[in-house]
């Protein structure tokens, strides 16, 4: 792949069967979510939550780095983790739209995390059985970290949903707003049923309603993003773009 593509914007949709494409998509998911959580540190409702958010951000970053590095090896053009993260444009990123959504209030942060954690629970347990041993190893490790993330996000979702009148309202609002990005989680996989059942039982414990708005926005996996991603990348990639080719 040509980095910092000068190709006409709107590169052909990646072939989902291609391993490099697949690795990049999952790397981008974790990279973008890590970046979002990184924005949050020092802004959390309590010190203990700052620390937890830091941990989760670091875990996602670790997964992203491992996947980018492996993607670079699979591609065989000598691209490093930094090159793949920093020198691809908005249209070349294939992360899910869900993870690029802004932090919003703490309810939005938690709902986004929860919906994604529940998805990654399926993803990692699936990939842990991959024929590709290297990928299976990464997935097994990520699955453990994800179990902790899910406990954190589900725990907080229940606390917010079944907490006060205000927190319930905020959690429901966040859920209603972010629900439109969930259909995309199941493109090209069979995770929906398990995901719906896991999410449904936590939502019921949280006394939250499963949204019934049928509208779904998709496109992340083919680079058709919301407007939030470009700004996130501008910030993330700024140093490398300003001083290309340097060691840091």
């Amino acid at each position: 792949m040509t980095l910092v593509s000068r190709a006409p914007q709107g590169t052909p949709p990646p072939d989902p069967g291609d391993k490099f494409t697949m690795l990049l998509a999952h790397a981008d998911d974790n990279m973008v979510l890590s970046q979002r959580l990184g924005e949050l540190i020092s802004n959390a409702p309590e010190l203990e939550i700052d620390i937890a958010v830091g941990n989760i951000s670091l875990d996602h970053l670790g997964v992203a780095r491992a996947l980018y590095t492996y993607a670079g090896e699979v591609e065989g053009e000598g691209h490093s983790e930094d090159q793949l993260a920093m020198f691809r444009n908005e249209r070349d990123f294939t992360n899910l739209l869900l993870v690029e959504q802004p932090n919003g209030d703490f309810a939005h942060t938690i709902v986004r995390q929860f919906l994604f954690d529940a998805y990654q629970a399926e993803l990692w347990s699936d990939l842990a059985h991959s024929d590709d041993e290297q990928l299976a190893g990464m997935a097994a490790r990520a699955a453990k970290e994800n179990a902790y993330h899910l406990r954190f996000s589900a725990g907080w979702l229940v606390r917010l949903g079944d907490g006060t009148y205000e927190s319930h309202h905020r959690a429901q609002l966040a859920l209603d707003e972010l629900w439109q990005y969930t259909a995309e989680l199941f493109e090209g996989n069979e995770y929906r049923e398990a995901w719906e059942s896991a999410v449904g039982s936590t939502l019921s414990e949280a006394t939250l309603d499963v949204p019934d708005d049928p509208y779904q926005r998709t496109g992340g996996r083919s680079g058709f993003h919301t407007e939030h991603l470009g700004l996130l990348l501008a910030e993330m990639q700024w140093m490398q773009r300003s001083y290309p080719g340097l060691e840091w």
Binding site: E48, A52, N55, Y148, R151, G155, R159
Partner: peptide
């Protein structure tokens, strides 16, 4: 939460 926090 105390257990989660203690871990972190």
């Amino acid at each position: 939460t105390a257990l989660e926090n203690a871990r972190d």
